[in-house]
């Protein structure tokens, strides 16, 4: 299962708002999501892909604005994302939580993020491992 270029572009706009990161970092996170979808079992990939679709395309259902999430104004998008994260409906909250959890793995792998947080390299190098 894949996350096509258009879907990546749209979800990157949302992720940039969620994590407060520049759009370039968010695009890399969306690319990570695409790679992740290709490596996990079909059932999990389908769940995540549906989650990405829903977060992209449900502004009308949740805040009554007939636009995809990436086309919302920043304030409307913030209100829209808050609907997901604070929803009374477990499935909505959980879907967003799942997306955030996977996206965070791509976020934390980003060199700019790791440098900013000063948390060291993502992976050990073989030289270090052999000490």
């Amino acid at each position: 299962m894949r996350l096509g270029p258009d879907a990546q572009r749209r979800i990157a706009v949302v992720l940039a708002d969620v994590f407060g990161e520049p759009i370039g970092v968010a695009r890399d996170i969306a690319k990570f999501l695409d790679g992740y979808l290709q490596r996990v079992p079909a059932r999990a990939a389908l769940g995540l892909r549906v989650g990405v679709w829903a977060v992209t395309w449900l502004p009308f259902a949740l805040i009554g604005v007939p636009l995809p999430a990436d086309a919302l104004s920043p304030s409307a998008r913030a209100r829209y994302i808050a609907h997901w994260t604070h929803s009374r409906h477990y499935l909505l909250r959980e879907a967003f939580y799942l997306l955030k959890a996977v996206a965070l793995m791509g976020w934390s792998a980003h060199p700019a993020v790791r440098a900013r947080l000063d948390v060291g390299p993502l992976a050990v190098t073989r030289d270090r491992a052999s000490t």
Binding site: M105, S108, A109
Partner: peptide, 10 residues
């Protein structure tokens, strides 16, 4: 070994 949480999970 030691490839970060994501790679470890995967």
């Amino acid at each position: 070994r030691g490839q970060g949480a994501a790679e470890s999970l995967l």
